[in-house]
């Protein structure tokens, strides 16, 4: 009986004291338990030791928990700092992406107002149109990204070979694709190729962006390959090209919104294409990665890994 009361009391003290009187948490709880233990009739050494051990255990848990909370807080602070940094980067890049076409548009309007020759005026209109197109593309992609934040995606079986064929057909309409060869490789065994559960339209968009990206950074002599592989658990869709490759310092950042690598400054595009790919693949509980080499054998391979059905 005293053993039990000693145990309960010391446990209670161990749990309650730090909560109610945090100041007292430095007091030796073992002593407190002992005091409670001896005031009870027929107290025994066993009761004291047991109470002491329980209190020590409670205290250990308490301090461990406090440390864990502190760790979580540090991690959260880091996360906030990281998010803020990302936001600042994003705004800085957005500012830049808007500024350029706006400057072009302004100059074109001035030319339109001042030019006397029809030819010059026509050129100003073309340039204004180009600047507008760039702004529109940026806005459309921003909208896609924000839309995907709130939209729930469809989950239906998606036929991978069919999807890749569809993407290549759509890409071939692009002017940049003229005279280019894009090969599609799909294993014949097992047949039929396993499906992915997901939103077909979004997956088309993701692969399309990767192929469009590959077209942008390669020349007519380079080859582009779109392929699907599977290893029993996941399906990998790869878009590979033999282009100049991505500089090593850019590789880790290219999926960030509006990030432009050092060799991507002058290329057309919203700067959001790869961020969209990343977002779509994440929505499908998959991952996307890239390996690239600027030395021979040079080239870039983007891999989307998606859970198979």
């Amino acid at each position: 009986m005293p053993f039990l009361i000693g145990l309960i009391l010391s446990a209670l003290v161990g749990v309650l004291l730090p909560t109610i009187y945090p100041v007292l948490s430095s007091v030796d709880f073992g002593t407190v338990a002992f005091v409670f233990g001896v005031t009870i009739r027929n107290s025994s050494v066993v009761a004291f030791f047991f109470g002491f051990i329980v209190t020590a255990a409670v205290l250990a848990v308490y301090y461990w928990d406090r440390r864990r909370t502190a760790q979580a807080q540090t991690m959260y602070a880091d996360y906030l700092q990281d998010t803020n940094q990302k936001r600042r980067n994003f705004l800085r890049r957005l500012d830049h992406e808007i500024k350029n076409p706006l400057t072009g548009l302004r100059a074109a309007l001035v030319n339109l107002q001042e030019a006397r020759e029809n030819e010059e005026r026509a050129r100003a209109v073309t340039n204004a149109g180009r600047a507008l197109e760039r702004l529109t593309r940026l806005l459309t992609d921003l909208r896609k990204l924000s839309d995907l934040e709130e939209r729930t995606i469809e989950r239906f079986p998606v036929d991978v070979p069919d999807l890749l064929e569809d993407v290549v057909t759509a890409v071939k309409i692009l002017p940049v694709c003229k005279g280019r060869e894009i090969s599609v490789l799909i294993p014949k065994v097992p047949s039929p190729f396993p499906t992915i559960i997901g939103d077909r339209d979004l997956l088309v968009l993701a692969v399309y962006n990767l192929v469009e990206n590959a077209l942008k950074f390669t020349s007519v002599e380079d080859s582009i390959e779109v392929r699907a592989l599977e290893d029993g658990r996941a399906i990998a869709i790869e878009v590979a090209d033999s282009g100049t490759g991505i500089p090593a310092e850019d590789v880790s950042k290219i999926f960030e919104e509006l990030y432009r690598g050092s060799n991507a400054r002058s290329t057309e595009g919203s700067g959001l294409g790869l961020a969209l790919v990343h977002r779509i693949v994440t929505l499908h509980r998959g991952g996307v990665g890239v390996r690239s080499s600027q030395a021979e054998p040079r080239g870039t391979v983007f891999t989307m890994r998606l859970p198979r059905n």
Partner: peptide
Amino acid sequence: VVWGWEYPAGTRTVDT
């Protein structure tokens, strides 16, 4: 109508 934004013209997407 379905997406609310310009979508790469994969005609098959609509046909499916």
